[in-house]
Design a protein around this nucleic acid. Structure first.
Length: 192
DNA sequence: AGACCGATACGCT
DNA sequence: GCGTATCGGTCTA
């Protein structure tokens, strides 16, 4: 396994979001190890993006980690689910990349146990589903992706990448049309 | 397509 | 303290 170096995260968010596609996201817990290839991402850029929690450089306890170094985990809870992001951008620029879907790789039995689903596609085909399948929790907030128990490794190189508007941000005025969602074309675990 | 679930954070009183 | 909105998921029709 080849971990992504810290320098990997030092690239513009819009290119990082595409280069994260195909990378393996891994989480180790007491229950075991589970991982998946990232197949869908979304970019959030606080400086210009009304859909971002950090819009207009809004600095709170929750958004704080996005102002720091790239390559750390930004987790938050919405409704009953935990969602996971990769912090991007220079220090002081609050940017993040939401992981919206992964393709199961390791610990698939563990994922079924955690999700309790029959259909494989339902294991990880959404931002809330994949965190539950992999065992990612709010407490992973701030963790650097270069070391256990939560890290990112080299996976596969996608043949083709698609792009389009992001999901679930209809109240964000013009930002809702930004084509800042990226996915591996044709991959069946993409959320929609 | 719509209702419900219900954890948090934030902004206001 | 309290009301409100939320980068979803799941169940019921």
């Amino acid at each position: 396994m080849e971990l992504m170096p810290a320098s990997f995260f030092q690239q513009p968010a819009l290119t990082l979001a595409q280069n994260l596609l195909g990378c393996e996201l891994i989480k180790e817990t007491e229950e075991g190890t589970a991982s998946g290839y990232i197949v869908e991402t979304e970019v959030y850029i606080g400086a210009v993006d009304k859909a971002a929690h950090s819009y207009n450089y809004k600095r709170t306890k929750r958004t704080e980690v996005m102002f720091g170094e790239a390559g750390h985990a930004y987790t938050y809870v919405m409704h009953t689910h935990c969602l996971v992001n990769v912090v991007a951008g220079e220090q002081g620029e609050p940017e993040a990349i939401l992981i919206r879907a992964v393709e199961p790789v390791r610990g698939i039995d563990l994922m079924y146990k955690r999700r309790g689903d029959k259909k494989e596609k339902e294991l990880t085909s959404g931002p809330g589903k994949l965190t539950k399948a992999l065992g990612i929790v709010k407490n992973d907030y701030g963790h650097p992706y270069g070391e256990p128990p939560l890290y990112i490794a080299k996976g596969f190189t996608p043949e083709h990448i698609s792009t389009g508007p992001r999901i679930g941000i209809d109240n964000s005025e013009e930002a809702r049309d930004f084509p800042w969602r990226f996915w591996v074309t044709g991959n069946r675990f993409v959320s929609r």
